[in-house]
C-alpha cells in the first residue's frame, strides 16, 4: 500500500500545533532541557551540530542503502532459486527463517567479532534484518501466476525458463516491490540497532552512535536532533521506494493495480 498525502495542509497544521504546544509546555512548566528540550532548542542543536550530524546521517544512510540493495538482489535471487525446485525451497527456507527470527541484537556482537571491517559488519546486520520480506514476498509472487495462464503456457509447450521469465516474474513484480518497501524500513532499523550494539570502532560514526554519545553526555537537544534526522531518513527511504515501485509497476502493469 502506498500512502500518498493528497492534501499536505491538515498534517502540517497538526504538526505546527503540536510543536507550539510542546514549546509552550516546556516553557510553562520550566522543564529542564536535559529532560525534555523544546523544539526551538532542538532546532538550535541541529544547526550547531549540522556538519557532525549530517556526516553521521550519511554514514547510516550508506549502510542502509548498501544493505537494502543487497537485500533486494539477494532476496529476489534466493526466491528464484527456491522457486526452481520444491526440494531447494524445503532445504533453504528454514535457514532463512532462522536468520529472520533470531533477534539482530543477539547476533550483532558476534558479527562484529567475526567481520573485520566495521562497515561490512553493520551492512551484514542490516541485510539479515532486511532480506526476508523481499524473499518471502517474491516467493509468494512467483507462485501467484494465474493457473489458467500457466495451463496456456503448458499448452503451447513453453519451457520452464519461458514460463518463469514471461509469466511468473512479471506476476511477482508487485509482490517484490511490496516486500522492498517493508525491507527499506527494516534495513534502517537493522543499521541503527547494529551500531547501537557494536559501535563503529571510531572510524566513521553513524547516527546511532551520535544518539548514544549525546545521551551519555546529557546533550539531550543534540540527541533529539539526531533522532529527528533518523526519522526523516526513514520517511525518505519509504517515499523513494514508493515512487520507485509505482514507476516500475506503471511501466509493467498500467494502472490496473
Amino acid at each position: 500500500m502506498t500512502i500518498r498525502l493528497k492534501d499536505p495542509l491538515p498534517p502540517t497544521l497538526i504538526g505546527m500545533v503540536l510543536l507550539l504546544a510542546w514549546e509552550g509546555a516546556v516553557r510553562l512548566f520550566e522543564i529542564p532541557h536535559y529532560v525534555l528540550p523544546g523544539p526551538v532548542l532542538v532546532a538550535k542543536a541541529l544547526w550547531q551540530n549540522a556538519p557532525l550530524l549530517f556526516n553521521s546521517l550519511w554514514v547510516t544512510l550508506e549502510i542502509t542503502l548498501v544493505a537494502l540493495i543487497a537485500a533486494a538482489l539477494g532476496g529476489a535471487a534466493l526466491a528464484f532459486v527456491m522457486s526452481r525446485a520444491r526440494w531447494l525451497e524445503r532445504s533453504l527456507l528454514p535457514y532463512a527463517i532462522v536468520a529472520q527470527v533470531t533477534p539482530i541484537v543477539a547476533i550483532a556482537p558476534l558479527i562484529i567479532i567475526w567481520v573485520d571491517s566495521a562497515f561490512a559488519a553493520l551492512v551484514l546486520c542490516a541485510w539479515i534484518v532486511a532480506f526476508f520480506p523481499v524473499l518471502a514476498n517474491t516467493m509468494t509472487g512467483l507462485k501467484s501466476a494465474d493457473p489458467n495462464l500457466k495451463d496456456l503456457f503448458r499448452l503451447y509447450g513453453a519451457s520452464r525458463w519461458q514460463t518463469q521469465t514471461w509469466l511468473e516474474t512479471p506476476t511477482a513484480l508487485p509482490y517484490f516491490f511490496a516486500g522492498l518497501r517493508i525491507s527499506g524500513g527494516l534495513a534502517l532499523i537493522g543499521a541503527v540497532v547494529a551500531e547501537f550494539v557494536a559501535g563503529t570502532g571510531g572510524a566513521a560514526t553513524g547516527l546511532a552512535f551520535r544518539i548514544l554519545e549525546a545521551g551519555y553526555r546529557l546533550q539531550i537537544p543534540k540527541l533529539f536532533a539526531a533522532l529527528l534526522l533518523l526519522s526523516l531518513a526513514g520517511v525518505l527511504i519509504y517515499a523513494t521506494l514508493s515512487i520507485l515501485s509505482s514507476w516500475a509497476l506503471q511501466r509493467w502493469h498500467g494502472n490496473d493495480l
Binding site: N148, D151, L152, L155, Q162, W166, P170, W252, H253, G254
Partner: peptide, 24 residues
Amino acid sequence: FVFQDATLLPWANVWDNIYLPFRI
C-alpha cells in the same frame, strides 16, 4: 484453448498477448 476468463497477460497489450504463442 479459450478459457472462461479471457486469461490475458495484464501487463501486455493486445498485440503482445496474441503474439504469446508465437513467442513461445
